[in-house]
Design a binder for these strands. Sequence first.
DNA 1: GGGCATTTCCAAAGCGCTTTGGGTTGCGGA
DNA 2: TCCGCAACCCAAAGCGCTTTGGAAATGCCC
Lengths: 341, 341
Amino acid sequence: MNLKELADSLNLSPTTVSRALNGYPEVREETRARVLAAAKAANYAPNSRARRLATGRAMTIGHVIPLTGRAEMVNPIFADFLIGAGEVYAREGYDLLLSMVTDGDTEGAFRQLAANGSVDGVMVQAPVADDPRIALLKELDLPFLVHGRTGDPTGYSWLDIANIRAFRRATDFLLDLGHRRIALLNGQEAFDFAQRRRRGFEEALAARGLAPLPHLMADDAMTESFGYLTASAMLDGPEPPTAFLASSVIIAIGIRRAASERGLRLGRDLSVICHDDELSYLNNDVGGPAFTATRSSIRAAGRRCAEILIELIRHPERPPIQELWDTDLTVGQSTGPCPTR
Amino acid sequence: MNLKELADSLNLSPTTVSRALNGYPEVREETRARVLAAAKAANYAPNSRARRLATGRAMTIGHVIPLTGRAEMVNPIFADFLIGAGEVYAREGYDLLLSMVTDGDTEGAFRQLAANGSVDGVMVQAPVADDPRIALLKELDLPFLVHGRTGDPTGYSWLDIANIRAFRRATDFLLDLGHRRIALLNGQEAFDFAQRRRRGFEEALAARGLAPLPHLMADDAMTESFGYLTASAMLDGPEPPTAFLASSVIIAIGIRRAASERGLRLGRDLSVICHDDELSYLNNDVGGPAFTATRSSIRAAGRRCAEILIELIRHPERPPIQELWDTDLTVGQSTGPCPTR
DNA sequence: GGGCATTTCCAAAGCGCTTTGGGTTGCGGA
DNA sequence: TCCGCAACCCAAAGCGCTTTGGAAATGCCC
């Protein structure tokens, strides 16, 4: 069933049927009702391919996921962000095009999307320092929103959490408990967010005249095994940390495993703070928060990012939209005073 | 830059340029080379919307994710499956359309996709008993592949792992170690896979004349907190289990937390086996496998599912394709003989 | 060199929708 | 009675591509 057939069956022109379905005012309400009823009865839905061609809009937003080498984007936060964004897209009538890039040529993928017009805008996640994607997308004149930020953050739209502040506060919290040998298990420092977190950590130390301890700092893909292996090595090494600051709950879970193997109880023998993205399957709140954590819902971020991106698509001349979200600090059972020995 | 402009600049007809770009034989190689060079120089890419309309193919595959109430699909395995499938789609020139359904009307979403022709086929994940999606998709005549299976599995294409066999084997493994009070922490038993796993568990017990213990069986969304809370309650209750069988590493991590809080060491005081989907950020293999586990890569499943679905789309008259994958049993450090007391 | 099969290219007709630029019709006011 | 204005509807022209059905040019054979 297509528009013409539907129109014929109603003794109307395709024009009128199209207008009736799309809510234009030039059609009598009675006619519109007739059309809507017939469309429903015939289970008619306008062909999206034809509609996209005719309107020139793709009604689609692209997410490009690089799959190079390490876990990188293939981490669990990716799913929750996607879900949040997808909810909004569905509500607003946009499709979500997910594009995996295996050859490392993310920029080529963007060029392709722009050239063949299959999306109206794209989401940029996990920017690295002076991320080339930003310059490229400006050049391509394709609406985009960055989750995170980098370089000079004035010329484009982004949404980010206050990473420096969060990690500075978390570090202060540990320092206030008397900890001095604090380890930082960070995400890959190629990413801007990890650099900021490190900076927050170092600033807090510096404010008390302390220097970071190189042997207690590591960064890598945020996996459980990274947390486990790194924490194990640090705990078994000279000058072991009395507290850990981790960039993700996943890492913290690895740390917990290392601690538990060594008979160390969290909150008493060892303290752990992490950043909690509030992943749906790693709820940190059951029976009181397990980990003391800085928190910010990645799913809510996905939702808001989608809203902003759609706004940018609808109003291309709009000045950039920028949002900085503060994080919460929730005190859980994984932190306590530095054990004196 | 569109086809006509490109053709004009080459003094060729759009027909010829289109054929040159699409590899048809009716064009001289020299001409083809000229066209390709010009297209590249002009950074030309055919408009995908127009192409889709003209060919009648969407070159898009849909994944529909229900977001009703509980975590359900919003679990971490979803991401890895998606990534695997996405790799193949990208290689084969298909787009991946991700559709979130928030109002619970998954079937309506499928109808919509079929009616407006925005996908050539869909992936069905996590089927429940006699899943209505299967009948619907047959009726809509939309190619689809089920990851998992349910009901009468002869009339459609699917890929599944041997859940019964896996859980039977895992249970046997625990029984051989002398365990008798074995707890099952399953995924939601509305899902077919969870029902099969339970069946494998019960069959293994029955084969030794044992009955399952109702107070040691639970099923829910596979979150860390489900594992933690349920294991805590069971361990603190009467007749605590000496071993756990869990449907996911995530659940097992929760069990480990409960055990560790009670000073129980895995592999010595308490045994845990889980099913491991080989999630990229929860590698179970670092420094020897942490958990004894039945294993099957969900990402590899995603890849293979995508391949099969594309095959089905290309050859609609093909008889159903069905694949049953066996799982590996990897012995890790989380299991040991039943402690005698 | 003419006939015939290839090779190489093109004009034009869709694909199914939206949208522009009118045409009718009906009604109130002069 | 006629005009003007809404209200309602339609024909036709795109959107940018693919593909059918030739036509012109070329090559080959006898």
